[in-house]
């Protein structure tokens, strides 16, 4: 919304570069990625498989170090896990030996702080999980598990929420439901959200801006603003604007894929000068 305004970005990625050492030599995963995320903004990252989206997100969370470049939260460098930043992982990543209550308590146990019961109950009610506290993850559906993971991630009121393909394993109906839920929670309590997704539709529906990354080594290829007012209804997905935007993004990703596959025997590393 106010992406390019003069306010200080909540999250700033500058020249993020990550090289993995593998058995067959070094691998450049992301190359000089830069991105500013405004406070309260929702940004999605899409890109071909293996473009380093997750690497970029994990670097933002402080779970990963960078080979070069830096991540700044409110202007201060992120050097490790940060209490202001919360992650939602691929699949719900609940601890199977804990019931739902104990799973939601987990961050507080680690941090040694007291959970805000009122806020957590409010969250549980918002996602429709009140009364399920004694259930174990195996007793919950995929959607319920992911909603529980969302409550856990928001339970300690982080100012930044990083979501790593959170709904990839869900069916499309549950996924749409989750998208609306996240927006609803976000409207209730604006949080800066960076979301990785494979679904361009999800990216458009959710975000203020969609970042398209190029194939490996991952670079920020383009950024598309999504100028629809909130709360958004699924009806916008049928508009021509969204259709054109979807196609543009798709073309950008596919075109990028094509160029990757049409250059015969091009070494993966060539692009990194």
């Amino acid at each position: 919304m106010n992406a390019q305004s003069s306010v200080q970005p909540k999250l700033r990625v500058r020249g993020a570069t990550k090289v993995y050492s593998t058995g067959s030599g070094d691998l450049l995963a992301i190359d000089r990625c830069s991105l500013d995320v405004a406070p309260g903004e929702i940004v999605s990252i899409v890109g071909p498989s293996g473009c380093g989206k997750t690497t970029l997100l994990w670097s933002m969370s402080g779970l990963h170090g960078l080979t070069a470049g830096e991540v700044l939260l409110d202007g201060k460098p992120v050097k490790g896990p940060n209490p202001e930043i919360s992650m939602v992982f691929q699949e719900a990543n609940l601890l199977p030996w804990r019931n739902l209550d104990a799973n939601i308590n987990f961050p507080f146990e680690i941090k040694g702080t007291k959970p805000d019961r009122v806020w957590i109950d409010e969250l549980l009610q918002m996602v429709g999980l009140e009364g399920f506290g004694a259930r174990f993850p195996r007793e919950l559906s995929g959607g319920m598990r992911q909603r529980a993971a969302l409550v856990r991630a928001l339970s300690f009121k982080p100012s930044v929420l990083l979501m790593d393909e959170p709904f990839g394993a869900l069916d499309s109906f549950t996924r749409e439901e989750m998208n609306r839920l996240v927006e609803q929670i976000w409207l209730d309590r604006p949080t800066t959200i960076v979301l990785i997704t494979h679904s361009i539709e999800e990216a458009i529906f959710m975000s203020d801006r969609v970042v398209v990354m190029s194939a490996r080594p991952g670079r920020v290829a383009n950024i598309y603003p999504v100028p629809f007012p909130r709360p958004r209804s699924l009806d916008i997905m049928a508009t021509k604007e969204v259709f054109d935007l979807t196609n543009a993004i798709k073309r950008e990703i596919v075109g990028d894929q094509k160029s990757r596959f049409s250059t015969p025997s091009a070494p993966v590393f060539q692009a990194a000068k």
Partner: peptide
């Protein structure tokens, strides 16, 4: 690794 990353994201120590 996912569960360990989860704990680390909350700042868990090795002992935790």
């Amino acid at each position: 690794p996912g569960k360990i990353a989860l704990a680390r994201s909350y700042g868990a120590s090795t002992i935790q």
